[in-house]
Simulated scan of single mutants.
Amino acid sequence: GWAQAIAPIIIVSALIVVLVLSRRGLWLIELGDDIGTSLGGRIALTKAGLVAIAVGLCAVVTAAIGPIAFVALAAPHLARLIVKNGPLHLVA
């Protein structure tokens, strides 16, 4: 029920807010390591943080609803179709 869904919703919402706040780092990573570093980004730290956010999101969702192999395989392709090649395709 909804009482059990409150904690995962709060955690996923907080992680998504952190992900949105790190959009500059996403753009720097998309430019490449050398250009991103020359523009003042800490690429290694940003990559580690983004991996931690991704692991956290996957862990919370898997703990809440269980492993769904098809969704895990299809989600990146569906997200790319939805977003196309816009500036937020890495977030999707």
Rank of each mutant, 00 (worst) to 15 (best):
L73H: 09
I35W: 03
R23M: 10
G40H: 04
V55Q: 05
H89Y: 07
I53E: 00
L26T: 11
E30W: 15
G1Y: 02
R23W: 15
A59T: 11
A92M: 04
V60S: 05
V20K: 01
L45E: 15
F70G: 05
A79V: 12
A48I: 07
K47Y: 03
G86W: 09
A74N: 02
A3H: 06
C58E: 11
L26D: 03
R23A: 12
P8H: 05
E30T: 10
V61E: 00
V60K: 02
I68H: 03
L39H: 07
D33Q: 06
A44H: 11
V12E: 03
A52C: 06
I6F: 01
L45S: 13
R24D: 10
G41L: 02
S13M: 07
K84V: 14
I68R: 03
G66W: 02
A72N: 05
L81D: 15
W2F: 00
L81C: 13
S22Q: 08
L50K: 04
A92T: 01
G1N: 01
K47T: 03
V61L: 05
V17K: 09
A92Q: 05
A54S: 06
H89T: 10
H89P: 07
R24M: 10
L39M: 10
D33C: 04
A52Q: 04
I82E: 11
G36R: 00
G56R: 01
T37C: 07
H77W: 14
H77S: 15
L19A: 07
A69L: 06
T62E: 10
A74F: 00
P8I: 06
I68N: 04
Q4R: 12
R23E: 12
V17P: 01
A75H: 07
T62G: 11
K84Y: 15
L81G: 12
R42W: 15
A59H: 14
I16T: 12
I29K: 02
D34C: 05
G41P: 01
G66R: 01
N85Y: 13
V61R: 00
A48G: 07
I9M: 13
V17W: 08
G32N: 03
L26E: 08
V17Y: 09
A64T: 01
Q4D: 07
G49L: 08
I82R: 09
E30Q: 14
A7Y: 11
A54L: 08
R42D: 14
I6T: 08
V17S: 08
A92Y: 02
R80V: 09
P67N: 15
L57S: 04
D34K: 08
R24Q: 13
G49E: 06
L73N: 15
S13H: 07
V18R: 06
D33L: 10
P67V: 14
L26M: 13
A69I: 03
L88W: 06
L73T: 13
H77T: 13
